[in-house]
Design a protein around this nucleic acid. Sequence first.
DNA 1: CCACGTACGGACAACGTTCTCTACACTGGT
DNA 2: ACCAGTGTAGAGAACGTTGTCCGTACGTGG
Lengths: 359, 359
Amino acid sequence: MAKRRNDALDDPEHRQSTIKDVAELAGVSLSTVSRVVAGNYPVAQATRTRVERAIEELNYVANTHARVLGGGSARTVGFIVNDVRGAAFAEAVHGVEQEAARRGHICLVATTDGDPVRELAAIQLMREQRAAAVFLIGGATDNAAYRARMADIARSLDASGSRLVLCGRPPLGDGIPVTVVEYDNEGGAYALTSFLVGRGHRRILYVGGDPTFTTTAGRLSGFRRAMGDLGCPVDESLLELGTDFTRASGYERVSARLRGERDFTAVFAETDVIAGGAMAAVFDAGLSVPEDVSIVGYDDIPLAADLRPGLTTVHVPYEELGRAAVRSALDRPAGRAEQHQMLGAHVVIRRSAERQSPA
Amino acid sequence: MAKRRNDALDDPEHRQSTIKDVAELAGVSLSTVSRVVAGNYPVAQATRTRVERAIEELNYVANTHARVLGGGSARTVGFIVNDVRGAAFAEAVHGVEQEAARRGHICLVATTDGDPVRELAAIQLMREQRAAAVFLIGGATDNAAYRARMADIARSLDASGSRLVLCGRPPLGDGIPVTVVEYDNEGGAYALTSFLVGRGHRRILYVGGDPTFTTTAGRLSGFRRAMGDLGCPVDESLLELGTDFTRASGYERVSARLRGERDFTAVFAETDVIAGGAMAAVFDAGLSVPEDVSIVGYDDIPLAADLRPGLTTVHVPYEELGRAAVRSALDRPAGRAEQHQMLGAHVVIRRSAERQSPA
DNA sequence: CCACGTACGGACAACGTTCTCTACACTGGT
DNA sequence: ACCAGTGTAGAGAACGTTGTCCGTACGTGG
């Protein structure tokens, strides 16, 4: 006979009390305790009171793991994000958390620092936890391997009744069971670029990430299309495409550009954080914003309002993104088809791009 | 006989494959599959390969819940925070997450918006999940009820081998099994206030939260002690104590003060976010920083460097706070005594408080 | 050729719940 | 007085793992 693993000896009193302890103390059966806790079956008032007292006394809490195994659902969702410290992602995380909590779900988090290997590992962990849905928040490097991997994951999750949810990434193609909630990178960048051109800017320095990154791809494409539509040829030498989205990278890249001949009148920064660095670089070069150089950003994080001059940027409804994602994923109808939702974005005008350019 | 709940009928193919499916496909017993997965027992190469192929084919992942029930540990930690959107908390969260991941633990999150009821509910949820430790991040409203509640929770968690960890809150008193990792609010505020007084400021407007909130209590007490030590009586009418820590509240409170007679030369904002609002208020009143009004903040979040002029503030090692908390809690020795750790803080000087005051 | 160690694999209890089935004591209608 | 119905409680299988115990096949040394 297999021996009881948790001998009373090896860990005296150092264990959580179980439903059995409660039943014994209250002098009832396991079933009765279970019913008092679940409240899904009539229990006589006197019995109920006795059980409740025992629960109180023993400080009993049900064991989720046993509950799930015994036929319940885990009521857990997982989300995976590059870095929780980014203001935009934090807002999306907040939306997911709030909406999940409203539905009685608890959240698992993992961060990846953009590493696909860690992303994969995190997803695996959440599959093990039987999360009801897995949210991937933020852009990704798009290529064939990525798509194959995601399609695979989407199908695995779907097969077990869970759901892959892409927040802020494009869909994977037809027939893949995935929920996608995007915001309009292309459209927002189009509007923002039009705004700049409308203010007379023709030579705009674009400071962004790598074009294989989906977010960059979308914003850059909106930029190009607007420039094209408005008759301003894009000078490829004014595309400053790097690999990261930090303030420091914005500062350095704009500083370097400013050291040579200044051949642009505006900066389109791909994120507000980069814009913050860009603005500091302009000031440190002894120039002013928007008089010498106009600057616009993207995301409309709180920082945008704190910069001086206030940053003209594109508002992205990150919190709503998170909420919408949870709603779609958790309340989705029985059908297993793909879902796609695109959230709008709009330009928020502040002072950082206010004056007419000298054409 | 109890019927199998998940009839093949009601959910065709919509279920995760189990170890049993793998065993059948590979033609081995459950034990063998378990051993291949765990890798803690010799399995012949040929058998191992067959099992691995079956796992691959069925896309099998172990069920955490069953694993935990079958004697394993959940390898889960939970953390609870007022709001993930705060930059400072986000950093602490990041520290916890990174350090927990390094130890193979996955994180559960919950947010409370500062509501003690929701905090309690979240803790309960994490007890149900059998989290190895529960981290409470950020200050709290301190009173007798709070202390009793926390002591109770600490003991409950301790009784089941888990641990309550307070990050950025004071200890609960002797004999309570709790891990505390604090940063020095009192000391940081003392140093910052000394800095201001050293620059000639005598009349300093303190803009902060409610003194029953532990963070406010600490910072305000450091402020008072420094003023006292340096021979500057604290004018109670210059204590602007409100209930929240938003940018808007900083803006409004300082704006209102500026509308009357300006009877202060510096603003001590209890957080950088409040300082951001305060700075905007000063500018909007047509005054300049630091020439007319010096401003200092607290926390040294990224915003502090983006403000213009750069914000003089107190650096708090939030990420390290999170890391230290995980280390203490997860690697703690067998003894169940309380642990206490205080992280230092230091003043970071930027331009927002640079000129000599007109005495 | 036999005893014996070694490498491997299977059977089965246990983990803490939930759910279904069954049992029992009343009640009230006939 | 009997039976159906109702309100309440218990017994026990099942959930998907892990760990322990126990076989069996295959060498290998005496």
